[in-house]
Write a protein that binds this DNA or RNA. Structure first.
Length: 921
RNA sequence: GGAAGUUUAGCUCAGUUGGGAGAGCACCUGCCUUACAAGCAGGGGGUCAUAGGUUCGAACCCUAUAACUUCCACCA
């Protein structure tokens, strides 16, 4: 015995195939449904029956393999079709995909599958990113564990290791993407360091260099002493750290006077080259131009006046360290101060630090404070919380320092990128993210692109050791073009990883070559990504795309939020709260995971991941699965018409088809607007509420009845609706819909390449559907009445109806009997009293009387009717309130006013009936 | 200091150009109704953060306030 399932109410055991949902049931060998043969495509899989519960593990991998084998994901240049291109944000090869990736990929796959079914020629370009710093950091860490360093290994061996790493993790990521069901074109998989991308990087660098938009210079940059590389502004994360404010006295030369400065980084005093005060500050006016003697070092530094100083803050006197602070750097330039760098690349004090040389920066800080105290120059120490920059890779505290690096001049690139969004050439969804994008680009500073790393695109600049020439070239340089010397060497540094990612939308298509792919698929249609990488990537693709190709790289940017944990915290390694998508897939299936990641999520908003949500999605899919089983079970041996005959449709048929059409229209519109959550919601409620809970039940009288033609027609409708439902659901739940599609009669090929359902106005049946809602209301009313008097659901009751809708009710007699749990329906004239004790209820189309004999508690019935009367009276009051307002009558749309009058009439009528009934009790 | 977001049922969240407040989960009642207990039927539960304003009409638009979140900048 195997424990199958445990829930609140029961525990089920596998009793050798005799068990079904806790009920003992003999397995019926005749109840088998056979999957049609997919033109011999599905080898090893003939004549398989549907299992009683949805079991994704049984088919997901097989179906994915079939898609790949049939080339369903392969992009084709087809002049007859409109291209639709999506560039997958290439995941870093640093590790595995997390829930955020799963959501990102799911959203892309939904859009891509939708468009593919709509007949576009789709390219979804997959790939991975070498993630220069992130990967190098990981490998360096690993080497440290092995007791070695990258320097010991040497550049060549290090790179070999890095490629090994890439193969390993890149492969893992591809596996994960496949498990998720991503329908990207694997034949085109790219890597940001492959040949094509590398050529694009060189071309881009070369072009900017030629135009003077790339330059090399000594500027203040963010230095990570741990990774030993420069970082861009975007790669620094600030956090409020508890620190101190140290007040130091600097002696004035040739006087007993001191000037008191405050600092949060005492060690930087070793590089001080001035003290600045505000020009208007009277306290210090007499000291401006005087000289101070820097303690420990003995350097003579001036007191300068500079507008930068805020006299209100601290002591109003600021120590100026031009080599280690961006603001001081500016002050230094203005006042022509020397720049003295006091830190080595690893964060230790260099030879400029005198007695502190060689010490780590924090040890130096400690010693300096002690030293100042001994010298009697320490005034006081205050607690101070301030923002400290950290390396977003290793979290080490960033040191701003002057260094010779390569920069991209941003102003000329940013302007067109802003304009493109202003002019709507690229649209953000939701549009509020455009503001964030503007905010970044408008305040952007030059982009530091050089990294002191080995893993990445090496800067395509060579230096001649003989003539000193600097040469930027697309091709490797072995001989100096200026002097012919062979003593040329390439710049040691690598490019920021985002320099190559920025080219992704066109480098993957072969740019700078005008390949057919580039011509056909570029510019791309939509970029799907999280708001957290707008500054890193979206904005850089924008200005790069515009610069190099003259076109915006994508028309739409669909921004989503972060996937958080159950408590709303960011999923992170350090918190250990991350959930591996693969584990969820193993437990619930990829479709369940995908659905749970998009339902109830609004564009751009963060979402919490809960397993309960996945479970709910899984339950929904199981529902669909069983609905299919129901249809197939009844379809067995029946020759189902390939098309539905409109003339033969019953009111219930028309109602469900009408609902289907409405759903098709709404879902299509929602998907076009990238409202994936709304689309999923519409599909779910149509499938569950309309199709399963109502139409399947409504179909049973016909299916179990004696009219074979009626049965055939009903099956045709069931199949028609189910097939379209599967198509609507396919982008969201690709695996199970493909699996089910394989079982459905009258379908061909694969659902992935099937046509997306179209709204057909001939099948809208608005009026008929509305009328049928009356029948549904009637059934619901009878059910509710039975419950309210504790009548067992299984007990069949007789219905006496006073109604003007006799024809409608007669047409649906079988359905009403079955669904309402009734034994007969009898029409009575208004005013005739039923001889037995009855309960009654008024609906839109009928006044219902149900004789329930001794079950009727007169007092309870009176109470119930009174309550109902109150409700109706309230409704009338509401309508009266509106209708007595002349402004409403005059200004509201006519339809609304008419509707309100009609409602009032209806409620007045209902009220009359209830009052009569109350009086008769 | 600047910007963006959030505030709706016990919980997590939807709410599509302003026109009678929704879902999932949880809860209550009753059901083994031959597709499905991963289910079915019925039900309870909300001053839509607060205060103003615009409007015939506001969860939705405007203004202010409060709380929370995030991003950017930053005074050494």
């Amino acid at each position: 015995m195997i424990l199958l399932r445990k829930n609140k109410n029961n525990i089920s055991y596998d009793a050798g195939g005799f068990i079904d949902n806790g009920r003992k049931k003999v397995y019926n060998k005749n109840n088998r449904f056979f999957r049609k043969d997919w033109n011999n495509v599905r080898e090893n899989f003939f004549m398989k029956e549907m299992q009683t519960t949805y079991n994704p593990a049984e088919f997901e991998d097989r179906i994915y393999a079939q898609w790949v084998k049939k080339g369903c994901f392969t992009a084709k240049i087809d002049p007859q079709k409109v291209p639709f291109t999506v560039m997958m944000p290439p995941p870093n090869i640093t590790g595995q995909l997390h829930m955020g990736h799963a959501m990102d990929e799911t959203m892309q796959d939904i859009v891509v599958r939708f468009k593919r079914m709509q007949g576009y020629s789709v390219l979804w370009q997959p790939g991975t990113d070498h993630a220069s710093l992130a990967t190098e950091h990981k490998i360096v860490e690993k080497l440290r564990e092995e007791g070695t360093t990258k320097e010991e290994l040497g550049r060549e061996e290090f790179l070999r290791r890095a490629y090994e790493w890439k193969d390993r993790y890149g492969g893992k990521i591809v596996g994960q993407l496949k498990k998720l069901g991503s329908s990207c074109d694997w034949s085109r998989i790219a890597f940001t360091m492959d040949e094509t991308c590398s050529r694009a990087v060189r071309e881009a660098f070369f072009q900017l260099y030629q135009k003077g938009l790339i330059y090399r210079g000594s500027r203040i940059i963010n230095w990570c002493p741990d990774c030993k590389t420069a970082l861009s502004d975007e790669e620094v994360a600030y956090s409020e750290d508890a620190g101190h404010f140290w007040y130091f006295n600097y002696p004035v030369e040739g006087s007993e006077e001191f000037i008191t400065i405050a600092t949060t980084r005492p060690e930087t005093m070793l590089g001080d080259t001035a003290v600045a005060v505000h020009p208007g500050d009277e306290r210090y006016a007499h000291l401006v131009g005087k000289t101070l003697v820097l303690p420990f070092i003995g350097r003579k530094i001036p007191v300068v006046a500079d507008e930068y100083v805020d006299p209100e803050f601290g002591t109003g006197a600021v120590k100026i360290t031009p080599a280690h602070d961006p603001n001081d750097f500016e002050v230094g330039l203005r006042n022509r101060l020397p720049m003295i760098r006091i830190l080595n690349d690893d964060g230790t004090v260099n030879e400029e630090g005198g007695q502190f040389a060689g010490l780590d920066r924090y040890e130096a800080r400690k010693r300096i404070v002690e030293g100042m105290k001994e010298l009697g120059l320490l005034v006081k120490i205050e607690n101070h919380v301030h923002n400290v920059g950290h390396c977003h890779r290793c979290n080490a505290t960033i040191e701003p320092l002057v260094s010779k690096q390569w920069f991209v001049k941003m102003a000329p690139l940013a302007k067109p990128a802003i304009d493109a969004v202003v002019k709507n050439k690229t649209k953000f969804t939701p549009d509020r993210f455009a503001k964030i994008y503007y905010n970044w680009l408008e305040n952007i500073r030059d982009w530091c692109i050089s990294r002191q790393l080995w893993w990445g695109h090496r800067i395509p600049v060579w230096y001649c050791d003989d003539c000193g020439a600097e040469v930027c070239s697309r091709e490797n340089v072995t001989v100096c073009p200026k002097c012919g010397s062979a003593r040329v060497r390439q710049d040691e540094d690598c490019l920021d990883t985002w320099f190559s990612s920025a080219l992704w939308p066109f480098s993957t298509l072969g740019w700078p070559e005008e390949t057919p792919e580039y011509r056909y698929f570029y510019p791309t249609d939509v970029l799907v990504t999280g708001y957290d990488i707008i500054p890193f990537w979206v904005m850089r693709m924008m200005f790069s795309g515009i610069r190099y190709t003259g076109k915006v790289p994508f028309r739409d940017v669909l921004i989503h939020g972060l996937v958080r944990d159950e408590q709303g915290r960011k999923m992170s390694k350090s918190l250990g709260n991350g959930i591996n998508p693969l584990e969820i897939i193993a437990k619930y299936g990829a479709d369940s995971l995908r659905l749970s990641l998009v339902t109830g999520v609004a564009p751009g908003n963060d979402t919490r991941f809960t397993e309960t949500k996945v479970e709910a999605s899984r339950n929904f899919i199981n529902k669909i699965w069983n609905a299919t089983r129901f249809v197939l079970m009844n379809a067995k041996g029946v020759d189902i018409p390939k098309t539905i005959e409109r003339a033969k449709l019953t009111p219930a048929d028309r109602w469900i088809i009408s609902r289907l059409m409405a759903t098709i229209r709404e879902v299509t519109l929602s998907l076009q607007k990238y409202d994936l959550g709304i689309a999923a919601d519409k599909i779910t409620s149509f499938a569950w509420d309309d199709f399963c809970d109502w139409y399947i039940e409504l179909s049973k009288p016909a299916l179990y009845g004696t009219d074979p033609e009626r049965k055939r027609q009903t099956l045709a409708v069931l199949l028609f609706v189910l097939t379209d439902l599967m198509k609507l659901l396919h982008p969201f739940a690709p695996f199970v819909t493909e699996e089910i599609y394989g079982y459905l009669p009258n379908t061909e090929g694969l659902i992935i390449t099937a046509d997306y359902p179209r709204y057909d106005p001939k099948l809208a049946y608005r009026e008929e559907a509305k009328a049928f809602e009356g029948v549904i209301g009637l059934i619901k009313a009878v059910r509710a009445m039975k419950v309210s008097v504790n009548c067992p659901p299984s007990k069949k009751v007789r219905l006496f109806l006073v109604t003007e809708a006799r024809r409608l009710i007669s047409l649906n007699r079988g359905c009403i009997l079955r669904l309402a749990g009734a034994s007969e329906i009898e029409f009575v004239e208004s005013g005739t009293s039923v001889k037995e004790k009855t309960v009654s209820q008024v609906t839109d189309i009928a006044h219902i009387f149900v004789p329930l004999g001794e079950l009727v508690d007169l007092d309870a019935e009176r109470a119930r009717l009174s309550k109902e009367l109150d409700r109706i009276t309230g409704e009338i009051a509401r309508a009266d309130g509106k209708l007595s307002n002349q402004n409403f009558i005059a200004k509201a749309p006519k339809k609304l006013v008419d509707d309100e009058f009609a409602k009032r009439e209806k409620y007045l009528e209902m009220k009359k009936k209830i009052e009569q009934q109350l009086a008769s009790l």
